[in-house]
Design a protein around this nucleic acid. Structure first.
Lengths: 205, 205
DNA sequence: CCATACATACGTACCGGTCAGTAACATTGT
DNA sequence: ACAATGTTACTGACCGGTACGTATGTATGG
């Protein structure tokens, strides 16, 4: 039955789509370079060179560099929630332990020598204008994170769960940024401990 | 013998503006554009066009675009410490009130519609490589801020003053970033309250 | 009193390189 | 055959940066 519709070679959606090989290599290289150096700092020529492909191949799989950046962030988004849910699953029914576990890992990652912060956050800084494809992905990720943190703060029994959730978000974003600003020995190393203090101070007595 | 040639206000020993100096106009425009759009996003042509000067004028006053960016940040640095010291001077001998006052103002600023975060932080994100002129200014500013926050945490009588100082820094950086990510109604609005909670939880009992 | 000379400040026009993106065609594997 | 990829060459815009000529004020010397 030839009734199957022609599927656009879009890597952006539909995880079931059998993506061409070149597109994968491009996205892998883009992920690495965009994260380490920044999106604006990396040109498409650099990407295709390192991926061992050619420019037309890039533009067959991605409509533009901006969309490639958005695809990079969508991939980043998936991996982020994987890490987040790992911490959550490690402490079922204990949101406080979930948060502390997640932040302990974040704090450790920020101490690695080539730590470059959160790809989402960095992209939003690079593209301050609303509506940019990359920024949209970033904003959605952060809004979802805020939603979940507030919900977890509520589950902890905080006096003001929205304030605590937002406070945790501030600490997390601060850790991302401070991690890349100060490097080893920076303030980000204390994020889990500070979060625990803030939680303690926010619980109903 | 009246010369009909119009002579521009020959007396420029005026109290406020001594000269329509090209370098000043350039730095003013650069400051505005770099902060709002990002450094990498703005070309030197755009700067000189908006400043009403020409490119050679820029390069007579600044050796390179990177150095112009560094100059912008040095100016930013001065204004930052002005704001910081305003909060400090408003509450002599009371570091906790100083911090809360400063963060109250930061929280308010983050709610303004065109808020774009901290120019220092943004520049460090845009230039992750160590040694970049702009990044050096940014790193120095942040290290000094950390030093002062830790000192203030000590003056408050915190159990672990370094941890509290770093926690405050995390909240501040988180507010900068969240301010530009979420806009009005974002988590940054609660930075002062969260800082106060964290301080309360960190004091010797 | 005027002319020359110099320093300062600015503009015109241009450089080579890189940017994102594309057209037309050849090659490969199934 | 067909679809994915590679090859080559190109575009127009923009990038940071510069060589070089021009205006103007001032100080000096005749």
């Amino acid at each position: 039955m030839p009734s199957d519709k022609k599927i656009e070679a879009s890597v952006n959606e539909a995880p079931a789509t059998p993506a061409p090989k070149a597109a994968d290599k491009i996205l892998d290289v883009a992920r690495d370079l965009f994260y380490r150096e920044g999106i604006r700092a990396i040109g498409v020529d650099e990407i295709v060179k390192r991926a061992g492909v050619t420019k037309p191949s890039l533009y067959r799989s991605f409509p533009s560099k901006d969309e490639l950046a958005a695809s990079y962030l969508r991939k980043y988004d998936l991996e982020f929630w994987e890490r987040f849910d790992e911490a959550v699953d490690a402490h079922p029914g204990n949101p406080r332990a979930q948060i502390v576990a997640f932040l302990t890992r974040v704090g450790k990652r920020t101490q690695k020598p080539d730590y470059r912060g959160c790809g989402m956050t960095n992209a939003a800084v690079e593209y301050p204008k609303h509506g940019h494809p990359a920024r949209i992905v970033s904003e959605n990720n952060k809004q979802e994170l805020r939603r979940r943190l507030r919900a977890m703060a509520g589950a902890m029994g905080a006096t003001d769960s929205d304030t605590l959730g937002d406070g945790l978000l501030l600490l997390i974003e601060g850790a991302y940024i401070s991690g890349q600003l100060f490097g080893r020995g920076g303030p980000a190393a204390s994020v889990a401990r500070n979060a625990d203090l803030l939680i303690e101070a926010s619980l109903k007595k």
